[in-house]
Design a binder for these strands. Structure first.
Lengths: 345, 345
DNA sequence: TTGAAAGCGCTAACAG
DNA sequence: CTGTTAGCGCTTTCAA
């Protein structure tokens, strides 16, 4: 089919008058180990170089039962946060000599399950998944099977799989504390999908900060059920029209904050004079809004990088009697202060 | 290594008392063709279903010389435009039963070359690449070898490879014409990397629109050499401080527009009253800036989808005496009018 | 209607 | 220092 005929160990061996074995050994850097003569080795190496030959990874994979391939299933590559994770993972795995098979689950649990199964079938040596939803029990069996699999972002410590995520509790608490310091007492929270682990933890952090100041948690101003712009718009609108007297809004995602901004503008509330706002996930454009938005930043790159590190450690000790010390990593978050929080009183 | 022992055709055959061959045929839907008895077929199918068995794709790949795998090399997954393309490609290929091997070239030509080579080595059945730079001559040989490879975004018709990109010339012309209609005559252009095909075509469109109105092309106000925010900031700053009297800026990317906005704010020019601005690539947040930015939208999703269609067509006719009618696709762009263009006079 | 056997390209015992 | 051989899991002649 292609005009460039793939040549093989066998062909090279024939042409050079040596055995396949020798060629194989030289090409896989085992010349030293088998004490193959300098001369033979260079002949082979030169020829391979000239012909631009590399052993067929498919055949290798079949024989070795390892494919030098990592699977990544991600909820939604368009989302810049996930894109950041994916980018970092792509680079890190490449640098380690692995190829990346990417699967986008579109936030759909069924697709996610299929993707994971397909990837194992494809014999990936390891896998990273950003669970699409709040349920990842379907992944539990892989923990038992001791497969190299690490969870990112949406995680559950109980499931017995290594993971890396941000310290979402601290994030919620930190943002709320900031608002509190600036004199806010009525702080609404746009919570995103409440069944989501990240949402729950952030809201818990929010509640903890409030409790620290002796302020009651008011369920009426903790609202929302999606992480997107539309949700932020709608819930802010409802909140404002309900006449609840909030002086600040904590939006648990960037799109949520965008939606809130739109609602606020429509309702003629100035930001931050009338209503302060803090966003989550520091996308570059936040600095360019008016006003520039104060936000809680989590590092997608750090998450991706850490996931790869943990995964490869797992792969290394996979067959060793690894005692599966469950590497769970909680990455720190930081508050980026800009101009969307107003000092009260 | 894993507790779940992969079972194989051989094992199934043994357990069921039939031959591997039969199992293989049934499982690959060839039961009819070989007139295998209803009974045998269902037995095998049931067992496979129960055991959740799927033939090892690696072995299959080795035997069949086709891996059901597509390669994608992309300049930068974090860039939302490329992320959109990647997302669409991921979904489309998945729906067609293919897995996607992703490689991020980081906009680096060397990495891109390596990625492409590695992917062919990995025996991908087809490949899509978004060239990182203005040079893609290194891809020319694949055209000669008649490999299924399609270029996206940054393309060159002469190279003999099928491609899909936006109508960049029309895009530049359309945006400029809009400005012209609104009475602008001194229109600066933040051109991004000028060696880039997309930049060149858009600037040509800009020039054409100007020429259509008998306005001279002034090289002094067509500036810049990168597509990022920093570049937009710097070049706008210089432009303003040089005292050139521009009334509008055409920014050939979103980040460029963001940078321009920052510079404009610093220099106390109001948008759009003092200076109008049009951006490129419609990112969701553009609607949330103040003012909401008018922009030229190109559909990343459409590009990804089209690329996959063309690729699979190519793959289908790869060995047929395909007359290689060079499918080059120019996707239409559209102008999204918001509030950043002021009517003059 | 079914099976035996060869072989895809590679590596790893085992044997010198 | 080098080679022979078996076999990874699959599909496909060829033969029955």
């Amino acid at each position: 089919m292609f005009s460039r005929p793939q040549n093989s160990l066998k062909q090279i061996a024939a042409k050079l008058g040596v055995s396949m074995t020798t060629v194989s050994r030289v090409l896989s850097g085992q010349a030293g180990k088998y004490r193959i003569s300098e001369e033979t080795a260079t002949t082979i190496l030169d020829y391979a170089r000239k012909e631009n030959f590399t052993p067929n990874p498919i055949a290798k994979g079949l024989r070795l039962r390892r494919t030098n391939t990592i699977g990544l299933v991600i909820a939604d590559v368009i989302n810049p946060f996930f894109a950041g994770i994916a980018s970092e993972i792509a680079n890190a795995t490449r640098n380690l000599g692995y190829s990346l098979i990417l699967s986008d689950s579109k936030g759909d649990l069924t697709l996610e399950k299929q993707a994971v199964e397909l990837l194992w079938q494809r014999q990936v040596d390891g896998m990273i998944v950003c669970p699409a939803s709040e349920s990842f029990e379907h992944l539990a069996r892989y923990a038992k099977e001791r497969r190299p699999l690490v969870l990112v972002d949406q995680v559950s410590p109980e499931i017995g799989l290594p993971y890396v995520t941000s310290d979402n509790f601290a994030a919620g608490k930190m943002a709320t504390a900031h608002l509190l310091e600036y004199g806010h007492k009525r702080i609404a929270c746009l919570q995103g999908r409440p069944t989501t682990i990240t949402s729950r933890l952030r809201v818990q952090g929010y509640a903890a900060a409030l409790a620290g100041r002796g302020i009651a948690f008011d369920p009426a101003i903790v609202v929302g059920d999606s992480f997107d712009e539309q949700g932020g718009y709608l819930d802010t609108k409802l909140l404002l029209q309900s006449g609840r007297d909030v002086t600040a809004i904590l939006a648990l995602s960037d799109p949520l904050a965008l939606g809130a901004l739109r609602a606020l503008a429509e309702e003629k509330r100035r930001v931050p004079e009338d209503v302060s706002i803090i966003a989550f996930d520091d996308q570059p454009f936040l600095a360019h809004l008016s006003p520039p938005l104060t936000t809680v930043a989590q590092s997608a790159r750090a998450m991706g990088g850490a996931a790869v590190k943990i995964l490869f450690e797992r792969m290394r000790v996979a067959d060793a009697a690894g005692d599966a010390n469950n590497a769970g990593l909680l990455l720190p978050v930081s508050l980026i202060t800009r101009k969307s929080v107003h000092k009260l009183g």
